[in-house]
Computed example of a mutant assay.
Amino acid sequence: MKEQSLETIEFELAVLVRHITSIASNKKNWTLDRSAYLLLHQIFAHGSAGVKALADEFRLDISTVSRQAAALEQKGYVCRIPDPLDGRAFSFQITDLGKKELVENKQERLARVTDKLQDWSDEECQRFGQLLRKFNRTFK
């Protein structure tokens, strides 16, 4: 890999994080922070999950995910489902209210992304999505 390309990627990632942080701190219509959005999205897309599975998915420690999931449970966005084989274990399942909040937040996020990419071609958007997915998968 060429050093200049890597320097460009490194710098542009830093700029991207700055922009996303700025947007996130100015989120008037979002009721879910990033961690809540990602946890709800994971549970919605893949079904109920325990704290350990969620922690493994996001490469976080169990106490962090447990705290985040408890906050979602307190808001009524997820509920606990007991494990039929192990009475001590449980999984989190998304509630109807959680689905509603997730869909509303996703629509707002999509609107912002759509606005930023309005001058991009379909091919550019598709390629960018593919490359971003590929990059994100390198962290697993």
Rank of each mutant, 00 (worst) to 15 (best):
E10D: 03
R18W: 01
G50W: 07
N26L: 10
R137F: 10
H46S: 12
F92D: 03
L13W: 01
A69V: 14
F92T: 04
I23C: 03
R137Y: 09
I20C: 02
A24H: 02
K27D: 13
S48I: 01
Q42D: 12
L131S: 07
S5C: 04
R34G: 00
A49E: 09
D115N: 10
H19P: 00
S22H: 08
G129F: 06
R18Y: 06
I9T: 03
S63P: 00
G98T: 05
A111P: 00
E101Q: 14
F139Y: 05
G129Y: 04
K2M: 07
R133P: 01
Q118T: 08
K99Y: 07
A49I: 01
K100M: 10
E3N: 04
I62V: 12
R109F: 14
L97M: 12
V113A: 15
D96R: 12
G76F: 11
E3C: 01
R34L: 10
K99E: 15
E10H: 05
L16E: 02
D96I: 13
I43R: 06
I43C: 05
A24G: 01
W120N: 08
A45C: 07
T64R: 05
F135M: 11
A71V: 04
K134P: 01
N26Q: 15
W120V: 03
G50L: 05
L60N: 02
H46T: 14
F135A: 15
D83E: 09
V78F: 04
L13E: 02
C125Y: 02
D119L: 08
P82E: 12
S5T: 14
T138N: 10
G87Y: 07
S35V: 03
S5K: 02
Q42T: 08
L102E: 04
T31L: 06
R59W: 00
R80V: 09
E123D: 15
E7V: 01
V78Q: 04
